[in-house]
Design a protein around this nucleic acid. Sequence first.
DNA 1: TTGTAAGCGTTATCAC
DNA 2: GTGATAACGCTTACAA
Lengths: 353, 353
Amino acid sequence: MKSLAQKTVTLKDIAKEVGISPSTVSRAINNEGRVSETTKRRISEAIKKLDYHPNIMARGLASKKTKSVGFVISKRRGRSLDRTSFYGKIIEGVEKEGRKYGYNPIFSVINEEERKSASLQIVKENRVDGLILAGCDIDKKLVLSLKERKIPLVLVDNHFDKEKISCVVTDNLNGAYEAVTYLISLGHKRIGFVAEMLSDLSFYERLQGYKLALKEAGLNYEENLVQESRDDIGYTATKKLLESQLPPSAIFAANDSAAIQAMRAIRKKRLRIPQDIAIVGFDNGEVAPYTNPPLTTVRVFTKEMGQIAMRMLIGIINNKNPLPVKNLMFTELVIRESCGGKLKRENFRPLTH
Amino acid sequence: MKSLAQKTVTLKDIAKEVGISPSTVSRAINNEGRVSETTKRRISEAIKKLDYHPNIMARGLASKKTKSVGFVISKRRGRSLDRTSFYGKIIEGVEKEGRKYGYNPIFSVINEEERKSASLQIVKENRVDGLILAGCDIDKKLVLSLKERKIPLVLVDNHFDKEKISCVVTDNLNGAYEAVTYLISLGHKRIGFVAEMLSDLSFYERLQGYKLALKEAGLNYEENLVQESRDDIGYTATKKLLESQLPPSAIFAANDSAAIQAMRAIRKKRLRIPQDIAIVGFDNGEVAPYTNPPLTTVRVFTKEMGQIAMRMLIGIINNKNPLPVKNLMFTELVIRESCGGKLKRENFRPLTH
DNA sequence: TTGTAAGCGTTATCAC
DNA sequence: GTGATAACGCTTACAA
């Protein structure tokens, strides 16, 4: 039953098998031009029979389409926890969605040379039809240079609003708003905000959500309730908060990592969570369920972001120049135990506008 | 200064520029056949000048080499914590090493169809020159089918010793041996072992290291000191241990996730870490420094595993059939606070044979 | 050392 | 509907 010749089957082979020309086979495969149903059927039978698979390279050469996209991340030095888990989830979504349309993601980390030249090897080599740029460590210069060269592009977890580049980002503002509103609904009046750094785009947006929630609740925004500490991801920041004259009764951390550090600081002070102080994180990372106590946090739909980004990118690749879109992903408050008991969400009113 | 024609520069263009034939240029670029130093120089000048980059697709078509490798993972249902962070680190290493030699990794998750057919789309399409199969959820049938078809292959964090397939794995035995020996050097006589599941290859090997350490120290191996609990990654297992007649004074967890669960169980019992019970994990994951107390654990060189795997794969791709090699990665005990204070390692003797 | 020419497996532009 | 035929950009014998 085994075929003896291990030669790869080509378009020609199946053309020969059916007794027609290669061009017709090509058309049939790509659903282009009219091909009679009968020959279509015979072609697909032959394809099955000979186990034919189009050669991507040949196809790419002829059609100028690689059916690959670059998934590129940039590693910034001095970024505390590396976010490989975050990126892993995104690319998983990218892969899943791409697979449906025959696109494969090429994983690429920007290196120094590329950073300097504001260009990418995989683009120069025509390895990809488009790019998904993930994370906010991506250089703006690179993005602009790519855009200028009309490379199909989607940003994930990053945006440059002024430049009108398609992107998919978490709705940090609403997510934070919801988290803080939840805290307020629990009776907290003094709520601290801690972050690794306020300059980070996502964290900045979360701060805005925090402010908005306070404002809507009629609470005063106090600058000294907002603290950052770069070296220890919010540990010192929390410490400062706890040692202040009027320490907060709750802390909203800019992300789960900061929340974990905050927890450490809180414990160090011999305070109990949530009895003495409540805490909410952001991201719903892998560890959130396993912190002590399990962390109430804002879930971010990472994998889905990847999927949506891929779908957008494919759209851009195939339609010439669709209007750029900023895709805001909803979040979801995941209530565990770090704010006290099994409190349900009914008590608080989410953002209505 | 800007060129008006945006046409992509090809081999021909630079041949024309220099005034020689394309084949010579090709040879020069690929360092094949003799090309005079002078023309070589002029060629590379022209390449710079015109900003030429070889078209990967064309090259692939002609040479049957794609300069891509597949990085493939398999997601098994019912696996507790997803290991995207682990895979992210590996592929980072793969990318880094591949970049040096012009190889790009294509990220791919095995889907149901592929699992059933024991074959991979990217292979059929000739998208890749070889594969890195990561994680122990990879089907043995797939691996064998790939091997039979002579697809260059390297396994990461997985091995089928009988099949003699090149792989790079953590030296779980020695890592575990070292961890347990450390515990013993601290005076512990009753040491428990907890895991999510003992059937997992890595965990099984770690169990062997645990046994070996006990044996070498002249301690008895007691079956009831080894517990697994699949549903909660070692939480129940630890609980069982703690509630036994002679509870252990230390626990060696098969990985950090299990260690975190063990910590939870220990706290639930109102025992202190490390005063009442010491704990060691395995992996040195991102969270290890942030557990309470910071977790002493065995460091695994994930990214480096990726690098080495890539290097091996490139070797296999370029030399026909080198002998398969099993690459054991050393580990490193990272001492934090979950076994007590700042104890140094001098007290204990690592494996000498 | 260099050039010529024939592919590599597709797609695309024409005619028919 | 279908079939020649010419690209696509590069590699690679084989000549020179």
